[in-house]
Simulated assay, not measured.
Amino acid sequence: MTEFESKTGELQDRRDSAPGEEHISEHETAGGLSGYVLGFGLAILLTIATFLAARTDLIYQPAVISALVVLAVAQMGVHLVFFLHLTTGPDNTNNILALAFGVLIVALVVLGSIWIMAHLNENMAAMTPHQAGTMP
Rank of each mutant, 00 (worst) to 15 (best):
V109P: 01
E28Y: 10
V110F: 01
D57A: 06
S66M: 15
P62S: 08
I48K: 06
A18P: 02
G112W: 00
T47A: 11
H119I: 03
V64T: 15
G9H: 09
I48P: 02
L11K: 10
T128C: 05
N95S: 13
L86T: 10
H130C: 09
A126W: 09
G89Y: 00
H27W: 10
L86V: 15
L58I: 07
S25A: 12
A72W: 12
M76Y: 12
G9S: 12
G9T: 13
A125N: 11
I96T: 04
L33F: 09
G41Y: 13
S34D: 03
Q12M: 13
P62L: 07
G32A: 05
R15L: 08
G77H: 06
G20H: 04
T93L: 15
E10Y: 14
N121L: 08
P90G: 02
T2E: 12
A54V: 07
I59M: 00
G102N: 00
M124T: 06
N94W: 14
Q61E: 14
H23W: 07
W115P: 01
T87P: 03
T93N: 13
W115G: 04
F101G: 02
R14F: 05
N95W: 08
M117P: 02
A118W: 08
T8Q: 07
A43S: 15
G77A: 04
Q61G: 04
I65K: 15
L120C: 08
S34P: 02
V70E: 05
I65S: 10
T2H: 05
A126N: 02
H85S: 10
G77F: 01
L42I: 04
H79Y: 13
A118S: 14
D57G: 13
S113T: 01
G35F: 04
M135A: 12
G20E: 03
A43V: 03
T2S: 03
D16G: 04
I96W: 04
L104Q: 00
V110P: 01
N92Q: 13
D57K: 06
Q61I: 13
T50D: 07
I116L: 11
L71M: 12
Q12N: 09
M124F: 06
F82A: 08
E21W: 08
L111Q: 02
L46V: 14
P19D: 00
H130L: 14
A49I: 01
H23V: 11
K7I: 10
R14V: 06
I59R: 02
L108W: 01
D13F: 03
Q75W: 08
V37K: 03
L97S: 08
G77R: 03
A53P: 11
S113R: 00
P129A: 10
I96C: 00
G39V: 02
E22G: 07
N92M: 14
P62R: 05
F4M: 11
V81F: 14
A125S: 12
A49D: 05
V73H: 04
N95D: 11
A107I: 00
L71Q: 03
A53D: 10
G20V: 04
Q131T: 11
G102F: 01
S17F: 05
R55E: 15
P129Q: 05
A126L: 14
T47P: 02
A43R: 07
G31N: 08
G112L: 01
A53K: 04
L97D: 09
G32H: 04
V81S: 11
S113M: 01
I105V: 11
I24H: 12
M135D: 13
N94S: 15
T87G: 11
A67H: 13
L11I: 15
I116P: 02
